[in-house]
């Protein structure tokens, strides 16, 4: 009986995850279009290239934070309020924005996504991505091997298009609670980095 309930609970959890996956995937598409549509329809000409000042091609590769914590969507559970963020490298040297991974306890996993946005009219090829270890303020470390970027090599980001890269962290069992910081770096923009933030929860799951 208990086993049956466990199985049912597991299935219910998976169902919730699939719904959340659907919502989050759709929300990220909306976010990207929000940036395109206004420019395209409101007078700049349909899909006209942005003639504003640009840095090198790599500078334009990443574009804008994707923040899905929409006020109107709070009916989803707190896990749904995760933030999917990418980053526009700032030629002015402003501190990078951060991809906040959903909080997770030791022995569990956390998953978020970042986006490579190629806002130029030329394709960008062979982008390598690397993740560093995550380190907490107390010096605890989640090794880089626990982080998986998928894909870790992007063959092509076509002109005016986007590629999603998922960041998966397998939090080691027994990992000390705390806020862990790390970086994703990419070959196409060597002077830039995307910050990662993961909160490791105590075993009881409470922040």
């Amino acid at each position: 009986m208990s086993r049956t309930l466990d199985a049912a609970s597991h299935v219910a959890h998976l169902v919730g995850d699939v719904q959340r996956f659907g919502f989050l995937s759709a929300a990220s598409v909306v976010k990207r279009y929000t940036e395109i549509v206004d420019r395209a329809i409101a007078g700049a000409g349909l899909l006209a290239p942005d003639t504003g000042a640009r840095g090198p091609a790599g500078d334009a590769l990443l574009d804008g934070a994707i923040r899905l914590a929409e006020a109107g969507l709070t009916s989803f559970d707190t896990m749904t309020a995760l933030l999917l963020e990418g980053l526009r490298p700032d030629p002015g040297g402003r501190a990078p924005q951060t991809v906040v991974l959903p909080a997770a306890a030791g022995g569990t996993t956390s998953l978020a996504a970042l986006w490579l946005h190629n806002a130029t009219d030329t394709p960008v090829r062979s982008v390598e991505l690397h993740a560093t270890a995550l380190t907490s303020s107390s010096g605890a470390v989640i090794p880089a091997e626990a982080l998986t970027l998928t894909p870790a090599n992007v063959d092509l980001v076509a002109a005016m298009s986007h590629r999603e890269v998922s960041v998966h962290v397998a939090v080691p069992a027994g990992q000390a609670p705390g806020h862990y910081h790390g970086l994703v770096v990419l070959s196409a923009a060597p002077q830039e980095a995307i910050a990662l933030l993961l909160q490791v929860l105590p075993l009881d799951g409470e922040p």
């Binding site: 996956f21 659907g22 919502f23 969507l73 989803f76």
Partner: peptide, 20 residues
């Protein structure tokens, strides 16, 4: 079943987004 659930997640969001 996966597609059905995936769509349900989006449909729930549609209900909320309507109000907005």
């Amino acid at each position: 079943a996966f597609a059905d659930e995936f769509a349900r997640g989006i449909a729930r969001a549609a209900g909320v987004a309507f109000e907005e």
